[in-house]
């Protein structure tokens, strides 16, 4: 009986994952057909294989599609880890201001360092910003005693502050305003093969950590007293989960800016589909994150032709109502 139940849950997660994957692929191909020159699906496939449209497909369109998938998956997993670590369904890096701080870090780093060093300084700035944001959240949030909405509100305030600070710097350095708009709103516009390489490399480096943290994610749902009784140090466990979440967020923000609400939406949608067990939740949340960002980008590109709405804005429009829905659903529970 045990085996059959586990198998049923596994099967469910597997089919959900496969369907998500199929949709992602469909959106990816569709995404590569659209642009200044409309290509047919066969032209895209041909281009990927090195055919006639190879340049436009592999240089411009494929990187953008791949970045959407990788960054979306990162946001999706980062949300799972942070929510698990803090046992708070609203605690995703985008709701609690970590992505905004990471974006600010990137913008400031790009501002102060010479352009030649930007390739190093911007990622460093992203990581620094994300870490500072997470530390502020935890320090301030802890002293609040940790109500679910309280922590989220603290994070929102931190995010608003980070955003205002970035806007202020934008005013000071108007020539850099374009860049800061991207960090602020989140966009996959202008993705290059180099960016794809950088993010892939980062994710490969993070992968062992993601794997280890994933195995420990379920335990994060226990209270601290139970953890101690089991011989697990709660501080180390939660600190580790938060660290992985911050690393994933940093990687994603460094490539696409502060995308809104993906880290909130993906884990919740995944939980509805496949339940709360880490082994099902984590991969499915990653896939749904990838799916959502790809879809947001596609929508942003086609909805207002010839203009392009940054994917981050589309994601906020899709994801924000979800937060409100969650609040209404969770109203009266927990605290």
């Amino acid at each position: 009986m045990s085996a059959s139940v586990t198998n049923r849950a596994d099967l469910r997660a597997f089919s959900a994952g496969m369907i998500a994957l199929a949709v992602i692929l469909a959106i990816a191909v569709l995404g590569m057909t659209i642009g200044a020159v409309t290509l047919s699906v066969s032209q895209v496939v041909d281009g990927l294989a090195g055919g006639k449209s190879a340049f436009i497909v592999t240089q411009y369109r494929a990187p953008r599609v791949v970045i959407s998938i990788l960054a979306g998956a990162s946001f999706g997993m980062a949300g799972v880890f942070l929510q698990g670590a803090l046992r708070n369904p609203l605690a995703s890096p985008d709701v609690v201001g970590i992505t905004k701080c990471a974006g600010l870090g990137a913008f400031l780093a790009g501002l102060v360092s010479p352009p030649a060093l930007a390739i190093w300084s911007i990622p460093a700035g992203v990581v620094a910003g994300a870490v500072v944001g997470a530390m502020m959240l935890l320090t301030i949030g802890r002293s609040f005693g940790g109500g679910i909405a309280a922590l989220a509100l603290v994070g929102v305030a931190i995010g608003l502050f980070g955003q205002a600070l970035m806007q202020y710097v934008m005013v000071l350095f108007p020539t850099r305003a374009d860049q800061s708009m991207i960090w602020l709103a989140g966009s996959v516009y202008g993705s290059t093969g180099a960016k794809v390489m950088a993010l892939s490399l980062w994710l490969v480096l993070c992968l062992p950590l993601v794997f280890i943290a994933g195995l420990r994610l379920d335990a994060g749902g226990f209270g601290d007293e139970t953890l101690i009784s089991l011989g697990i140090l709660p501080g180390r466990l939660r600190g580790g989960l938060i660290t992985v979440s911050v690393l994933l967020t940093a990687g994603a923000v460094a490539s696409v800016g502060s995308m809104g609400f993906l880290g909130l939406l993906a884990p919740h949608a995944a939980r509805l589909l496949v339940g709360a067990r880490a082994r099902h939740l984590l991969p499915v949340s990653a896939l749904i994150g990838a799916l959502t960002l790809s879809a947001a980008d596609l929508i942003g590109r086609v909805i207002a032709l010839p203009n392009e709405i940054p994917a981050g804005i589309v994601a906020a429009v899709i994801g924000g109502p979800y937060l409100i829905f969650l609040l209404i659903k969770e109203a009266g529970r927990h605290d």
């Binding site: 109500g147 909405a149 509100l153 969770e330 109203a331």
Partner: peptide, 13 residues
């Protein structure tokens, strides 16, 4: 707090 959070989310959207 939840109400304020809902309001701010509406504002963000």
């Amino acid at each position: 707090m939840k109400l304020a959070l809902a309001g701010i989310s509406i504002q963000l959207v």
